[in-house]
Write a protein that binds this DNA or RNA. Structure first.
Length: 437
RNA sequence: GUGGUCGUAGCUCAGCUGGUAGAGCACCGGGUUGUGGUCCCGGGGGUCGCGGGUUCGAGUCCCGUCGAUCACCCCA
């Protein structure tokens, strides 16, 4: 019986997921991020310490617990909060700036939907420093993600970037003090439309119609180059924080333009990740899958981790692996060339010959070729079907009476003499191939 | 967590106003004592998500529950 929100995928899908994990890991390491795994549980105080009360946290309890135990534990709902805790706890042993990646499951008790689960996998990178963190790390995040995704057969990714300093500074310069509330209302723009947003701005934060219109004008700005800066300036609002934010956002956009044209777009209505983000925020959509929302997001957090009066600012971004794959699987947008890793099935003429066939399979494996011996000495037709149903490309036939062995490509039907100590399949056939559509 | 829609064989679905289940594909066997995918013949398989209620009788009506999905919330 399935449990809502806790998906269990079949081997082909798991193979695809593992390929994504491999790609993420390899790319993260290319950029110098070090591997880390933190425990699955944190004290609830840690999980809720940054105003994350809205997140549905799963609590952990023992079956034999007498009553409510002190020091209640909860499963982590992201990888950033546990990481911040880890950094403060181990600050003395780490070298800063500290770059690490974590690919782990996280849990949230929200209502499941397609691409939204209660247990899901995230692939996360973060950089944390002591005191202050250089801004160029904010520009690196989208590049790493672009690198991961461009190496996978998934639709093109579009990373939307904004900077909370721009919004906050703008609203403040405009004379609206409740910047958080304004942000929250603006964030609903796509859902409730400009008119409703305007009404709420007037009603909830006491904005004048002109102020509300100006906020909407800001949210409307979007560009793949630095032209958004002028567009903002034209709105005639000035504030030091706004200037700072614009400069930062410009650096992210220009760096991306230089290294990966088309990957990043400045989108001034992006406001999510309100919780602990203080500057840059990222959100990612796959082309053609915009309606499913973001599959990768993150941002800059300057105040998440502190020890005494020392702070550890950071910036990070996280790929929702389960979310992305769940969405693509749902649209049949990903496929794998076979349902098992096996490249060669060694046919078994008689059960007495199993030992010989095992040796043949062993010779193939020793050279890195995934091979298995047929389950029973059924008719060869059945043994070929065994391979065919699984998408296994080759069947190996032991030669009789001293005749040489042969190997058959069951897709083409071509069958040639072969030596298990030397034969190699084409590189493309060695392992299952993931493809998109 | 709130609300809506949906839930019949492995898959896609049919089953009129309630009278105790069907098709195609898939699967298994045979035709083809051993190199498959075509074709022909035959076969297995469903407590109609689960539980309760109304009724002489429920897949078909009502309630609950579980699951999927959509919107809200929130976010990967």
């Amino acid at each position: 019986m399935p449990i809502s929100g806790f998906p269990e995928w079949m081997p082909p899908q798991r193979m695809i997921e593992q390929r994504v994990i491999d790609r993420a890991r390899a790319t993260f390491e290319l950029y110098g991020y070090a591997p880390l795994e933190t425990r699955s549980v944190e004290p609830i105080e840690t999980l809720l310490s940054k105003g994350e009360t809205s997140k549905e946290v799963y609590l952990l309890s023992r079956l034999q617990a007498e009553k409510a135990e002190e020091g209640q534990l909860g499963l982590h709902f992201d990888l950033t909060v546990p990481f911040a805790r880890f950094v403060t706890e181990n600050a003395g042993k780490l070298q800063f700036p500290f770059k690490r990646y974590q690919i782990q499951k996280v849990w949230r008790g929200e209502r499941p939907q397609e691409g939204r689960y209660r247990e899901f996998l995230q692939a996360d990178i973060d950089v944390v420093n002591r005191g202050t963190l250089p801004f160029h790390y904010d520009t690196e995040m989208p590049l790493v993600i672009g690198d991961v995704l461009s190496g996978l057969p998934v639709p093109r990714a579009r990373i939307q970037v904004n900077n909370r300093k721009v919004c906050e500074g703008f609203y403040r310069g405009l004379g609206l003090a409740q910047t958080d509330e304004v942000l929250r209302i603006i964030d609903k723009l796509d859902k409730i439309g400009p008119n409703a947003v305007k009404e709420q701005l007037v009603a909830k934060v006491g904005a004048t119609e002109a102020q509300a219109d100006t906020c909407l004008a800001l949210a409307d700005i979007s560009s793949e180059d630095g032209s958004f800066v002028d567009a903002v300036r034209k709105l005639g609002v000035s504030d030091p924080l706004l200037d700072e934010g614009l400069e930062e956002l410009l650096r992210v956009v220009e760096t991306a333009r230089d290294h990966a044209p088309g990957l990043v777009v400045a989108e001034l209505k992006i406001a999510r990740g309100l919780d602990y983000y203080t500057g840059t925020v990222y959100e990612t959509q796959l082309e053609g899958y915009e309606r499913f929302g973001s599959i990768c997001s993150g941002g800059r957090y300057d105040n998440l981790a502190t020890v005494g009066n020392e702070s550890f600012p950071g910036v990070g971004i996280s790929i929702g692996v389960s979310r992305m794959l769940g969405i693509l699987f749902g649209q049949q947008a990903l496929a794998v060339s076979r349902s098992v890793p096996t490249c060669v099935v060694v046919a078994l003429p008689h059960e007495e010959l199993r030992a010989d066939c095992d040796r043949t399979a062993g010779a193939l494996r020793r050279r890195g070729i995934p091979a298995e011996v047929a389950p029973t000495a059924a008719k060869f037709g059945k043994q070929i079907q065994y391979a065919d149903k699984r998408g296994i490309p080759y069947v190996w036939f032991p030669g009789r009476d001293g005749e040489p062995d042969t190997v058959k490509d069951i897709r083409s039907g071509e069958q040639v003499e072969a030596d298990a100590a030397a034969w190699e399949p084409p590189a493309a056939d060695l392992h299952p191939v993931i493809s998109g559509s």
